[in-house]
């Protein structure tokens, strides 16, 4: 497994895209830090990048990578290696290289500008989102044998989690406006990793004061030991379930 991971990593790095991604994140972070001296504001701007770009890059890159390494997988499948470790080493290789790019891409400039502690929660949710959307990317890849179709499904996932879901959520909130909605929305936002990441992030910052009673209610929940455990567990579940589903399909798929 570790040996295979080495080859997957070599394969991912050979594509250069990961390097480009890291440089891009670095450039964005550096520019934002240069434009604004207030680390809190930089983190807010970076949050937008993390919430949009990280999921998009993760899921699309994963899908493309899966189909590009189809030959590699074929080659491995004729060897005495089980499918599970082929799949998991693929996952680990893609997720870890994207995570590393994000960590360095944001972490290094932040360190240089002396704001490492402020970006820590951001990097935390960024890493979670990376792992989650890599999982979803593998799920999209396992659903079809057609690369173009798989990329389509991946983009649909991204679109759903960043936009469509929130639209539905807003509609629900608006429609049931007469009822106490705090607890239902708390549950509904946990069902979308991007929303959960955004709220975890907002609540960790001073700016949550603008969120009024609802913000206070959520802060109460997410600030408690149980709430922290809950949000991490939810994020963990979001990494796990698409991954396991994809693994199940991968084990059964014909190559």
């Amino acid at each position: 497994m570790t040996r295979m991971l080495k080859y997957v990593l070599q394969d991912v790095l050979r594509a250069r895209f990961v390097l480009f991604y890291m440089v891009f994140m670095m450039a964005v972070t550096t520019i934002l830090f240069q434009l604004d001296s207030d680390p809190a504001k930089v983190v807010m701007s970076l949050l937008n990048v993390v919430l949009l770009v990280v999921p998009l890059v993760s899921i699309v890159f994963t899908t493309i990578h899966y189909f590009n390494s189809y030959e590699f997988i074929l080659l491995l499948m004729a060897q005495p290696i089980n499918r599970k470790s082929v799949f998991l080493s693929q996952y680990a290789g893609v997720a870890s290289s994207l995570c590393l790019s994000l960590l360095i891409g944001i972490g290094l400039p932040a360190l240089a500008f002396g704001a490492a502690t402020q970006v820590l929660p951001l990097i935390n949710v960024g890493l979670f989102l990376t792992c989650i959307f890599v999982s979803l990317g593998f799920l999209a890849s396992s659903l079809t044998r057609d690369k173009a179709k798989a990329i389509g499904i991946a983009l649909l996932f991204w679109f759903y989690f960043t936009l469509i879901y929130d639209g539905i959520l807003l509609w629900v909130i608006y429609a049931f406006n007469d009822y106490p909605l705090e607890t239902p929305t708390l549950i509904l936002t946990s069902l979308n990793p991007v929303d959960l990441a955004r709220i975890m992030m907002l609540l960790s910052m001073d700016i949550s004061a603008l969120m009024g009673y609802t913000g206070a209610f959520f802060k109460d929940f997410f600030g408690s030991g149980f709430g922290i455990l809950f949000s991490f567990a939810m994020m963990g579940l979001w990494v796990m379930w698409p991954l396991l589903l994809a693994l199940r399909r991968f084990k059964k798929n014909d190559l």
């Binding site: 919430l51 909605l181 609802t214």
Partner: peptide
């Protein structure tokens, strides 16, 4: 409660 969507895309 709609404040929860603040800063979303």
């Amino acid at each position: 409660v709609a404040i929860l969507l603040w800063r979303s895309f």
